[in-house]
Amino acid sequence: MNLIFLLIAAAVVAWVFRFAGQKITGNKPFFRDMPFAVAFGYVAGLLVLIGAVSYYFRPVEVNGVPAAGVIFFRWAVQGFIGFAIAAYLFRLFGRTVGTLGTRKLFRAMPLTAAFGVLVILIYALVSIFAGSIAPYGQEEIFANANIVPGGNPMMGGDPNFPLGTDQIGRDIYSRLIYGAQNTVGIAFATTCLAFFVGGSLGFLAAIVGGWLDQILSRAVDVLMAIPALIFALLLMTIASVWSNQLGIDRTIFMILIIAMIDSTRVYRLARAVGQNIVVMDYI
């Protein structure tokens, strides 16, 4: 019920906001052409911002009990602001240091793109040097379990485990670092393999055509008709048996399976591009 009243109040404020803007600015195009949905979006965004600010300044401890939600929300906000500042400095650094081409690229780069590139670089560095960055091994078990994140002993934390430990005593911070290594490594390998297989077969089908194009295209249609997640789980079930018999790590099978499923979309795109190029006169 409170949510309904809040939505009605936001709608009324949005109408008043648009009407007042039209009157104050002399019916200028910005307010004159503004749809009601846009005005409502402005008001809703303002309400969300006010709620986020009020939640950020809530006490982190209520009756001696740590408010985990407030703590993690503060970490998230501070991390986002810190990354935004780092992205701005990263873009500024790229505009002044490097070759002419890289400086030109950074000058045309939006701040959001710099943010994304910086995050990717940090992921790559963390995944490459995970063994040197992580304070503990990813499967190292300690005597104390379920340590509260934050490192404050008064709240049940431990400075040695800034993100706490899980239910069996493994350091969450170390496992996150090694998780980046596994995730980035597997994603990079599967992407490269999928583009190599799909792109090669797509261009081959476009160039040769005929029966080879028909066989490859119909095989891709069959693979794309099967739900990807169910198909991948089925193949992983079969591969788990083969991995024990052949002595091959299951991760290798997982990379091959994901790459094979993802290569179907790459094949479609490469074949379409190849067919447009192969009919040109210079070919």
Results as ranks from 00 to 15, higher is better:
G79C: 06
V97F: 11
L92P: 02
Y56R: 08
V60D: 10
Y88R: 04
V97P: 02
W75T: 10
V38F: 10
G82L: 06
F90D: 05
P59M: 08
V65K: 14
I71Q: 10
I81N: 03
V48N: 04
R58F: 04
T96L: 01
I81W: 11
V97S: 02
V97D: 05
F83V: 15
F93R: 03
F72V: 14
W75R: 09
Y88M: 10
G41P: 01
A84R: 06
M34P: 02
Y56W: 13
Y88V: 09
V53I: 15
A44H: 03
L46N: 00
F80D: 04
A84I: 09
G69D: 09
L46E: 00
R32H: 09
P66G: 08
G64R: 07
G41A: 03
V43D: 01
L89F: 15
F73P: 03
R95K: 14
V60H: 03
V38L: 09
M34W: 00
I85K: 04
R32I: 00
G69N: 13
A76H: 12
V77R: 04
A76W: 14
F83W: 14
V43R: 02
R32K: 13
F72I: 14
V48M: 09
P66I: 15
F93L: 11
V48C: 05
R74P: 11
L89W: 14
F72M: 14
V53K: 07
V77A: 13
R95H: 01
V60P: 07
A84T: 11
L49E: 01
G69M: 04
R95G: 07
M34H: 00
A86N: 06
W75I: 14
R74Y: 11
R91D: 03
F57G: 08
W75A: 15
V53A: 13
A44M: 13
G94Q: 08
F73H: 05
F83H: 10
V48T: 13
L49D: 02
F36E: 06
Y55F: 15
A44T: 13
A37E: 12
G79T: 11
F93H: 04
V43A: 00
I85T: 02
A52L: 08
V65S: 10
V38R: 07
F31Y: 12
I71A: 10
Y55P: 00
F90R: 03
A67P: 03
A68L: 15
I81P: 05
F83N: 06
F72D: 11
G51F: 13
P35M: 06
A76K: 11
F93N: 00
V77W: 11
A84Y: 07
V62Q: 03
G64S: 02
A52M: 07
F36N: 07
V97M: 08
F90V: 08
A67W: 11
V53L: 15
V60R: 12
I71M: 13
F40V: 00
L92S: 15
V77T: 13
V62D: 04
A52D: 03
F72K: 14
F83E: 05
A87K: 01
V38K: 08
F90E: 03
L47Q: 02
A44G: 05
R74D: 09
V62P: 00
F83Q: 07
G45M: 09
P35K: 06
F30H: 05
F93D: 01
F57V: 14
N63P: 07
F80H: 06
F36Q: 02
A52E: 00
A84L: 13
A52C: 05
V70K: 05
R91V: 04
F72S: 12
P35L: 04
